[in-house]
Amino acid sequence: MSNSKLYKGSLNTIILKLLNEHDKMYGYEITQKVKALTQGELNITEGALYPALHKLEAEGLLDVEVAKVDNRLRKYYKLTESGTKETVNKLEELAEYIKTMQTLMNPKLA
């Protein structure tokens, strides 16, 4: 993940959130989607994305489906039931974190 190390801790949340909004996605699609949504501000590197996906799969948060697309095989990821629940928790955690950071950075606005 480039741009900033600050994003690193949120990679799992970003993946879970995207998969929550789409039925299923594959690795390359996730990198492109993030790039498009953030207008190129955030670049998820391949070296960070796949380990994160595999870890989430191992924890039972993601399910996998391999399908033939054109002349090659494609591995799709989708949320499991516990993955959907975990997405809610992770998003709440992130919102809380953002709120705390805003309080710290901008005490007058808080």
Partner: peptide, 14 residues
């Protein structure tokens, strides 16, 4: 290498 290493760890953990 990182992908293989992490994938191995993830499979073992699973």
């Amino acid at each position: 290498n990182d992908v293989i290493e992490e994938k191995t760890k993830a499979l073992n953990k699973h």
